[in-house]
């Protein structure tokens, strides 16, 4: 589950230009817990930079998203340049380089869900939450994102919230589903 704790400093500086300096500052940015988990992954690969995707997953797990500061800290820790880390972070769909809410709603927009009218579900979510794809509710509860095929095409339309998969979704189900996430 996504950790509830928010690092206020990260949110405040989001979007600012990265000031990259090597050294102690970045080293101290990562928590002991994050460093232990990253060390575990480093031990499994032939060289440190091969653990970068795992490191991004670990830091995102603890902080919900990857800030410029997180990129710099991971880069310093794995002896990579921030640009190298960012090139990987921005490549993958599920590494978030912008702040997200406490819960991320992923709406499958691929072909079987298209045929089964995921568009109606998206429209209903937009009306209920007053946000579009790529946006976060003002109370920071939900972020709404489109997502590639979730692999349950026989139960389309489908959506995922955090780790939970919802199948055969109807508009009538949405309120009950959303209530579970606060």
């Amino acid at each position: 589950m996504i950790t509830q704790k928010i690092n206020k400093d990260n949110v405040a500086t989001s979007g600012s230009t990265a000031h990259y300096t090597t050294g102690l500052q970045e080293e101290q940015y990562l928590t002991d817990l994050e460093r232990q988990a990253i060390d575990h992954e480093i031990a499994l690969v032939p060289y440190k930079s091969a653990a970068v995707i795992e490191a991004l997953k670990i830091v995102q797990h603890h902080r919900r998203w990857i800030s410029d500061e997180s990129v710099n800290a991971i880069a310093a820790y794995l002896q990579m340049s921030p640009a190298e880390v960012d090139s990987v972070a921005t490549f993958y769909n599920l590494i978030f380089r912008k702040p997200v809410g406490r819960h991320v709603i992923l709406v499958c927009d691929s072909i079987s869900c298209y045929v089964m009218k995921y568009g109606d579900i998206y429209k209903a979510l937009q009306e209920k939450l007053h946000i579009k794809f790529g946006e976060t509710t003002s109370d920071q509860c939900y972020t709404l994102l489109p997502n590639c095929c979730l692999g349950c095409c026989d139960h389309a339309p489908a959506l995922m919230i955090d780790n939970d998969l919802y199948k055969d979704v109807t508009i009538a189900m949405l309120d009950r589903i959303l209530q579970k996430y606060t």
């Binding site: 091969a50 990987v88 997502n147």
Partner: peptide, 23 residues
């Protein structure tokens, strides 16, 4: 476990992803 990209299904791209690179 991956972090989401269709390209990872292509076997050489998958290997790059396993090595911590762009797929």
């Amino acid at each position: 476990t991956g972090v989401g990209r269709y390209m990872c299904g292509e076997e050489t791209a998958l290997l790059n992803a396993l090595e911590g690179k762009r797929a």
